[in-house]
Amino acid sequence: MKRILIVEDDEKLKKELAYFLCHNGYETKELEKYDTPVEDILHCGCDLVLLDINLPVVDGQYICKEVRKQSDIPIIMVTSRNSDLDQLISMNYGADDYVEKPFHPQILLARIAAILRRVNKGKESPEIIECGGWQLDVAKRMARNQGMEIELTKNEWNIVFFLAKQKGTLVTRDALMSYLWDSEMFVDDNTLTVNVTRIRSKLESIGIKNVIRTRRGQGYVMEDKEKE
């Protein structure tokens, strides 16, 4: 499990952030004192740092700069200052990403995931999602079944991926669309239906049948086990 260090001086936000990240599959660690933040970050053994800009003792941008001199640990800056210039300064100091308060929790999550994915690229073997008899190849954006492969478009892939991550549970149309929109695919209701139909026929062409079920007026479920 990936560990995230939260460097945030507001107790309440720290608590909620930790709670939120824990519930989304991360382990968290919080910084309690701010007298030696640079050393603490360097020795925390975490995979990513969420760094607030406004901190009591030392400025977040300074911390970022100092940490970067000695380590490549991914840093996401969190700030309430909102201007391109601030963003530029942070990025120049070596931050990997930059989110503004008030951030959307899901977007923060997506950014964390994106950075971790980027960082771990090459280190881990390409991820394969096992879907009960057939597989999804994350790196190649392909569905695979008994030696047969089919390529999916970006839209199709995102839909299948999101459903597969929550297989066996109902995914509402709104939740699915919301996820797609976060990935900058602004599909509407009809497009979604069309895409799902296309996915079904693509999957069928390599022998995967009836894996995506429609619940009328609610959403879709990806079957946990392939039922013939």
């Binding site: 507001d10 936000l13 909620e16 939120f20 503004e100 308060k101 008030p102 951030f103 899901q106």
Partner: peptide, 16 residues
């Protein structure tokens, strides 16, 4: 900038 902070916390709470 100050007020954005409580908004962020509020959103976090709503999400959690």
């Amino acid at each position: 900038h100050e007020v954005k902070h409580p908004i962020a916390v509020g959103k976090m709470i709503a999400e959690n």
